Amino acid sequence: MPLQLIAANDSHCTFARDLTRRAMLPYYREYDLLWIEEAFDQAWAWREQWLICEGDSLLGFCSLSQDREALFIRELHLLPEHRGRGVGSWVLETLAVWAGQRRLPLLRLMVFRSNPARLLYQCHGFVEMGEDDCFVRMQRVIDNG
């Protein structure tokens, strides 16, 4: 079955929040940050939310925003049993295509410094642009031909 990104709606917020919390809580603890459920819910309202699906199976979700320069990946999370199968790579390449279709020159994200996903992002053309105590800012230049 082919992978798809399908627009999420408010009924998917609980799934996305729980998945994000499970994936990110170890990093929040590592960097002594506070997870705030309400902050996730508020961001849900103004971001683009997409479900990552394979047929009828829900594999994860991603959350996006954009400005005049970039499509910004705010969240990208897969259920543990779907990690390591190339799904994340497919999502990153699909979002790069979307950025190009939107005539945006950059695809951006932030990742916790200790998150091994940094290597995945580097393999997909993301370059580290700076970091602070917790996060690394990364971007990929999009060729709009």
Rank of each mutant, 00 (worst) to 15 (best):
Q101Y: 08
C53P: 02
D32C: 02
C62Q: 03
P105L: 01
D56S: 09
R21I: 11
L106R: 13
F72R: 09
I52N: 06
R74S: 09
W98Q: 15
L107F: 04
Q66V: 01
Q42P: 00
C62S: 10
L51F: 11
R29M: 12
C53W: 00
D56H: 02
W50L: 15
A43C: 10
E48L: 04
Y27W: 07
D56K: 06
L78W: 11
V91F: 09
R108S: 09
L33Q: 14
R74T: 11
I36S: 05
R83H: 03
V111C: 12
E38L: 07
L109V: 02
L79A: 06
S65N: 09
L107P: 06
L19H: 03
P80V: 07
L25D: 12
R102C: 05
Q49M: 14
R83L: 05
R74N: 13
Q42H: 11
Y27H: 14
S89D: 08
P116V: 10
R85K: 15
E81V: 11
R113T: 05
A96I: 07
A16F: 12
L92E: 00
P105A: 10
E37D: 15
Y28N: 06
D41P: 03
G60A: 12
R29H: 10
L58M: 09
A23F: 04
W90P: 08
L78T: 14
S65V: 00
R47P: 00
M24C: 13
S63K: 03
M110K: 12
R29D: 14
L106T: 00
R22Q: 14
R47V: 00
R113S: 10
S63N: 08
Y27A: 05
A70R: 14
L79T: 01
M24K: 10
H77C: 03
E93H: 09
L95F: 00
Y28D: 05
R74I: 01
V87I: 14
L104C: 10
I73P: 07
G60P: 08
D56W: 01
L19N: 08
A99P: 10
A23T: 14
H82L: 06
H77T: 04
I73T: 08
Y28E: 09
L64S: 08
L76D: 09
A16W: 12
L58P: 03
P105I: 00
G55V: 05
G84D: 11
L95V: 05
A70S: 15
L58Q: 13
S57I: 12
P26L: 11
S57M: 11
A99M: 07
L78G: 10
G55M: 01
G84C: 04
Q49P: 02
L79M: 12
H82W: 15
V111W: 02
L64H: 06
R68L: 04
C13A: 15
T20Y: 14
M24P: 08
P26F: 05
E38C: 03
W98R: 15
L25I: 13
Q49I: 03
W44F: 15
P105Y: 05
Y28T: 05
